[in-house]
């Protein structure tokens, strides 16, 4: 997945995770595991992804599964970019 690093960077910058984000891989759990990622932070994160990748996220696409892991989020971005 070409965008994994980019998604990690957006996570790091948006949630101010600092060096912790460099240990993330595709299996790292997000929503529910990362204290910084509450519902408000999800909004900020979606906005950052939209602007970075120039994609539009629909409301019904914002689900718990989407934010399950770094990998699921990256897959979503990849799908959006391929569309």
């Amino acid at each position: 997945m070409a965008t994994l690093d980019e998604v990690k960077t957006v996570l790091r910058d948006t949630l101010q995770l600092g060096d912790r984000a460099s240990n993330f891989d595709a299996s790292t759990p997000l929503f529910g595991s990362l204290p910084e990622l509450d519902s408000m932070a999800v909004v900020t994160l979606i906005a950052a992804l939209e602007e970075r990748f120039d994609l539009t996220v629909e409301d019904d696409e914002i689900t718990g599964e989407l934010f399950e892991t770094v990998g699921s989020l990256t897959e979503f971005v990849d799908l959006k970019l391929a569309a």
Binding site: S39, M40, V43, I46, A47, T56, D59, D60, I62
Partner: peptide, 24 residues
């Protein structure tokens, strides 16, 4: 796009409170 992002703040707040779900 910016306005959608703004409206989503309210969608997320409703999600967090467990109230009826909203959409932009």
């Amino acid at each position: 796009r910016m306005l959608d992002q703004f409206l989503r703040v309210r969608v997320a707040a409703a999600m967090g409170k467990g109230g009826p779900s909203e959409s932009t």
